[in-house]
Protein backbone atom coordinates (compact mmCIF):
# COMPACT_ATOMS: atom_id res chain seq x y z
CA UNK A 1 0.00 0.00 0.00
CA UNK A 2 2.74 2.40 0.97
CA UNK A 3 5.55 3.31 -1.36
CA UNK A 4 8.36 4.95 0.55
CA UNK A 5 11.07 7.00 -1.09
CA UNK A 6 12.23 5.10 -4.13
CA UNK A 7 15.53 3.39 -3.40
CA UNK A 8 17.79 1.97 -6.05
CA UNK A 9 19.12 -1.27 -4.60
CA UNK A 10 21.47 -1.79 -7.52
CA UNK A 11 23.69 1.18 -6.72
CA UNK A 12 27.27 0.40 -5.82
CA UNK A 13 27.36 -0.24 -2.06
CA UNK A 14 31.00 -1.25 -2.29
CA UNK A 15 31.92 2.43 -2.14
CA UNK A 16 30.88 2.60 1.50
CA UNK A 17 30.92 -0.97 2.74
CA UNK A 18 34.49 -0.93 4.08
CA UNK A 19 34.31 2.41 5.78
CA UNK A 20 32.99 3.49 9.18
CA UNK A 21 30.63 5.73 7.33
CA UNK A 22 27.54 3.71 8.17
CA UNK A 23 28.15 4.02 11.90
CA UNK A 24 28.93 7.67 11.43
CA UNK A 25 25.62 8.16 9.61
CA UNK A 26 23.72 6.49 12.46
CA UNK A 27 25.53 8.66 14.95
CA UNK A 28 25.08 11.96 13.11
CA UNK A 29 21.40 11.32 12.35
CA UNK A 30 20.79 9.82 15.82
CA UNK A 31 19.14 6.85 14.15
CA UNK A 32 20.62 3.65 15.57
CA UNK A 33 17.62 1.79 14.15
CA UNK A 34 18.81 2.18 10.56
CA UNK A 35 20.07 -1.05 9.03
CA UNK A 36 23.06 -1.33 6.70
CA UNK A 37 20.88 -2.02 3.66
CA UNK A 38 18.75 1.05 4.22
CA UNK A 39 21.82 3.21 4.70
CA UNK A 40 23.58 1.86 1.63
CA UNK A 41 20.50 2.55 -0.44
CA UNK A 42 20.25 6.06 1.02
CA UNK A 43 23.90 6.71 0.24
CA UNK A 44 23.47 5.46 -3.28
CA UNK A 45 20.46 7.73 -3.80
CA UNK A 46 21.74 10.78 -1.96
CA UNK A 47 21.09 13.85 -4.12
CA UNK A 48 24.45 15.29 -3.04
CA UNK A 49 26.22 12.09 -4.08
CA UNK A 50 25.03 12.36 -7.66
CA UNK A 51 27.59 15.06 -8.42
CA UNK A 52 30.42 12.90 -7.04
CA UNK A 53 31.08 11.70 -3.54
CA UNK A 54 34.76 12.48 -3.25
CA UNK A 55 34.11 15.00 -0.56
CA UNK A 56 32.85 12.23 1.68
CA UNK A 57 36.42 11.72 2.70
CA UNK A 58 36.81 15.39 3.60
CA UNK A 59 36.63 17.06 7.04
CA UNK A 60 34.22 15.73 9.71
CA UNK A 61 32.05 18.80 9.28
CA UNK A 62 31.81 18.22 5.51
CA UNK A 63 31.01 14.58 6.15
CA UNK A 64 28.31 15.52 8.66
CA UNK A 65 26.86 18.03 6.19
CA UNK A 66 26.82 15.35 3.52
CA UNK A 67 25.20 12.84 5.87
CA UNK A 68 22.48 15.36 6.65
CA UNK A 69 21.42 15.33 3.03
CA UNK A 70 20.73 11.59 2.96
CA UNK A 71 17.16 10.51 2.20
CA UNK A 72 16.97 7.92 4.96
CA UNK A 73 13.70 6.08 5.56
CA UNK A 74 11.34 7.16 8.32
CA UNK A 75 11.38 5.28 11.63
CA UNK A 76 9.41 2.03 11.39
CA UNK A 77 7.34 1.91 14.55
CA UNK A 78 3.70 1.45 13.69
CA UNK A 79 0.73 1.76 16.01
CA UNK A 80 -2.35 -0.40 16.06
CA UNK A 81 -5.34 1.52 14.75
CA UNK A 82 -8.55 -0.41 15.38
CA UNK A 83 -11.52 0.54 13.23
CA UNK A 84 -14.62 1.61 15.13
CA UNK A 85 -18.05 1.02 13.68
CA UNK A 86 -19.96 4.27 14.09
CA UNK A 87 -23.21 3.06 12.61
CA UNK A 88 -23.69 -0.45 14.01
CA UNK A 89 -26.90 -2.39 13.32
CA UNK A 90 -29.75 -2.05 15.82
CA UNK A 91 -29.08 -5.54 17.24
CA UNK A 92 -25.58 -4.44 18.25
CA UNK A 93 -26.67 -0.97 19.32
CA UNK A 94 -29.37 -2.26 21.67
CA UNK A 95 -27.44 -5.31 22.86
CA UNK A 96 -26.62 -3.69 26.24
CA UNK A 97 -30.30 -2.86 26.78
CA UNK A 98 -31.35 -6.39 25.88
CA UNK A 99 -28.75 -7.77 28.26
CA UNK A 100 -30.00 -5.43 30.99
CA UNK A 101 -33.57 -6.60 30.37
CA UNK A 102 -32.51 -10.23 30.63
CA UNK A 103 -30.61 -9.50 33.82
CA UNK A 104 -33.66 -7.76 35.28
CA UNK A 105 -35.85 -10.73 34.41
CA UNK A 106 -33.36 -13.25 35.69
CA UNK A 107 -34.57 -13.35 39.34
CA UNK A 108 -38.17 -13.78 38.22
CA UNK A 109 -37.60 -16.25 35.41
CA UNK A 110 -37.09 -19.42 37.56
CA UNK A 111 -40.26 -18.75 39.55
CA UNK A 112 -42.24 -18.22 36.40
CA UNK A 113 -40.97 -21.54 35.11
CA UNK A 114 -41.61 -23.41 38.37
CA UNK A 115 -45.27 -22.38 38.67
CA UNK A 116 -47.20 -23.47 35.59
CA UNK A 117 -50.23 -21.34 34.85
CA UNK A 118 -52.85 -24.14 35.21
CA UNK A 119 -51.45 -25.12 38.59
CA UNK A 120 -51.56 -21.52 39.76
CA UNK A 121 -55.21 -21.32 38.68
CA UNK A 122 -56.12 -24.40 40.72
Amino acid sequence: MTQHVSIDQTASPALFADSDLLDEVRSVLKRPDLGDDALLSALANAPAARGGIAHVSATPQDRADFIRTLPVPAPRHGLEMPQHDLNPPLAVRFAPLVALWHRALHPLAPQMKRVPVPAKDR
Binding site: M1, V5, T69
Partner: peptide
Protein backbone atom coordinates in the same frame (compact mmCIF):
# COMPACT_ATOMS: atom_id res chain seq x y z
CA UNK B 1 11.40 19.20 -4.58
CA UNK B 2 11.88 16.89 -1.59
CA UNK B 3 15.47 16.08 -2.58
CA UNK B 4 16.27 19.75 -3.12
CA UNK B 5 14.77 20.72 0.23
CA UNK B 6 16.67 17.91 1.91
CA UNK B 7 19.95 19.35 0.63
CA UNK B 8 19.07 23.00 1.27
CA UNK B 9 17.97 22.39 4.85
CA UNK B 10 20.46 19.59 5.64
CA UNK B 11 17.39 17.73 6.83
CA UNK B 12 18.43 14.09 6.38
CA UNK B 13 16.83 12.02 9.14
CA UNK B 14 14.39 14.86 9.91
CA UNK B 15 12.52 15.23 6.63
CA UNK B 16 10.75 12.28 5.04
CA UNK B 17 8.69 11.87 1.91
CA UNK B 18 6.46 9.00 1.00
CA UNK B 19 3.85 8.56 -1.68
CA UNK B 20 0.92 6.14 -1.50
CA UNK B 21 0.02 4.34 -4.67
CA UNK B 22 -3.64 4.20 -3.70
Amino acid sequence: AYEQLLVRQNAGGRLFYRRREQ
